[in-house]
């Protein structure tokens, strides 16, 4: 499974990368915002996208919308990991087609739960 991690803080990218490795996902790549991530997604055969919301350049919600608008990427599972937790924002993310939403600060366990849930749903559908 090839995973792209997008966050403007390098420490957070490393944390998520390490947690994913502990969960058995070793094929991970990272980008610091949507502008860098989108070409990577279009070029590479990624299976999963983990993205922050608030980033300079292209933010996470715009990246999600761009992914859903691309015929080749529209089915890509997307997990948002963000400090944003306003009701309207979560609704916006849901409407844009997010598959999971984790609020920072989070625990290793909650991240695993969300990832498991996303793949469970995909396997069942």
């Amino acid at each position: 499974m090839k995973i792209l991690i997008v966050d403007d803080f390098s420490t957070m990218r490393r944390i998520i990368k390490k947690l994913l490795r502990d969960l058995g996902f070793t094929n991970t790549f990272d980008a610091d915002d949507g502008t860098t991530a989108l070409p990577m997604l279009k070029k590479g055969d990624f299976d999963f996208l983990v993205t922050d919301w608030n980033m300079p350049g292209m933010n996470g919600i715009d990246l999600l919308k761009a992914v859903r608008a691309d015929p080749r990427l529209q089915k890509l599972p997307v997990l948002m990991v963000t400090a944003e937790q306003k009701r309207e924002q979560i609704i916006e993310a849901a409407q844009a087609g997010v598959n999971g939403y984790v609020v920072k600060p989070f625990t290793a366990v909650s991240l695993q739960e969300k990832i498991d849930k996303i793949f469970e749903r995909i396997d069942n559908s």
Partner: peptide, 29 residues
């Protein structure tokens, strides 16, 4: 709004992952 600071949460902000999960399941996710 960025990270929520205990005691000064912004209006409309949810109280953490559990609240977010409740809203998400209402939205069918």
């Amino acid at each position: 709004d960025g990270p929520q600071i205990p005691g000064m949460e912004t209006k409309g902000s949810l109280g953490g992952q559990d609240d977010v999960d409740d809203l998400l399941s209402e939205l069918g996710i």
